[in-house]
Structures are given as C-alpha cells and as structure tokens.
Amino acid sequence: MNLDELTARLHAIRDQNDWRQFHSPKNLAMAASVEMAELVEIFQWLSEDQSRQLPAEKLAHAGQEVGDIVLYLLLLCAELGLDMDAVVRAKLADSERRFT
C-alpha cells in the first residue's frame, strides 16, 4: 500500500469536489469516529464466535467501513503534517518494546 499515492488520490477527489473547506483536523477526526461507529454497529449483539464468522455481506460491509476509517485517517495525517507510516511504525515499535 503506497500511502502517498492514496493520499494524492484522496486529495484529487477532495479538490474536485471543493471539500477542502470541510477537511479540518477536527472534522476529519469526527468523520473517522462516525465511520468507526458504523463498523461497531456491524458487530452489535453478535457473540464472539459470530463476530469471527461474518456472513459474506457483513464482511464486505465491514471492509467498506475499515476503508472509510483508513482514508479519513490518511486525510487527517496529511492535514496535521504527520507521516502515517512513521507514526504507525513508531507505535508498533513502542508496543513491541512494552509487550514482548
């Protein structure tokens, strides 16, 4: 996954639709949160086993929501001047140090 390419494609969509005015860090964080809630809703009331064995339709829906979340987070990183690859790698290294 080339994050720079994905971000450039997102920015092209944003610019074509004149959405930059809405893409403040606050709004992007809130939009990612809304998408996360939509992902959580897929699993609401399922047992642990059911949540691991989603029917194809629900699995596809979960994938769409994950995609939405990741794309909003890419836009948020761009707005904040954060390198997503770097912050994810740093967090993973921190977790490896703390938990392994």
Rank of each mutant, 00 (worst) to 15 (best):
Q21F: 02
I42A: 04
S33F: 01
Q64D: 13
M36T: 11
G67Y: 04
G67E: 06
F22I: 10
E48A: 12
R20S: 14
Q50P: 01
A31D: 06
W19V: 02
F43W: 11
L54T: 03
L28N: 02
I13M: 14
P25Q: 11
T7N: 03
Q64I: 05
R9F: 14
S24D: 07
F22W: 15
N17Q: 08
V34C: 11
S51T: 04
R14M: 06
G67W: 02
A31R: 03
L46I: 01
F22N: 15
K26T: 09
K26Q: 15
M36L: 10
F43L: 15
P25C: 10
R14C: 02
I13G: 00
Q16I: 04
L46P: 02
P55W: 08
V40P: 00
P25K: 13
A37S: 13
L10Y: 12
V40T: 11
Q44I: 04
E35S: 06
Q21M: 07
A8M: 05
P25A: 12
H61E: 14
F22P: 05
L54K: 03
R20I: 09
L39P: 07
R20F: 08
E41T: 02
F43A: 06
N27T: 03
A37L: 08
E48C: 03
E48K: 06
E57M: 04
E35A: 05
I13S: 09
A12I: 14
R52K: 12
A56V: 07
K26C: 06
L54C: 01
E38D: 09
H11Y: 12
R14W: 13
F43G: 05
L6D: 06
A29F: 13
H23L: 12
L28P: 01
Q21I: 06
H61G: 00
M30E: 12
D68Q: 10
Q53W: 09
Q44R: 13
L54M: 01
L10W: 13
H61L: 11
P55A: 08
K26V: 05
L10F: 12
L46F: 00
L59M: 09
A60D: 14
D18S: 11
F22E: 15
P55K: 07
F22H: 15
Q50V: 03
H61Y: 07
L6W: 13
E65F: 04
R9C: 11
R9H: 15
P55M: 05
E35V: 06
E48G: 01
Q64R: 14
R20H: 11
Q53P: 00
Q16M: 10
A56I: 06
S24C: 09
S51P: 05
E35M: 07
Q16K: 15
Q44F: 09
D68C: 05
M36H: 05
I42Q: 02
Q50T: 00
Q53F: 10
R9I: 11
A32M: 02
H61V: 00
V66R: 10
S47Y: 02
E35T: 08
A62D: 03
Q53S: 14
D68I: 04
V40K: 12
A12W: 08
Q64S: 10
L6S: 07
Q21V: 10
L54W: 01
A60P: 01
A62L: 01
N17V: 00
W19E: 05
Q16R: 15
N17I: 00
R52Y: 10
E65L: 03
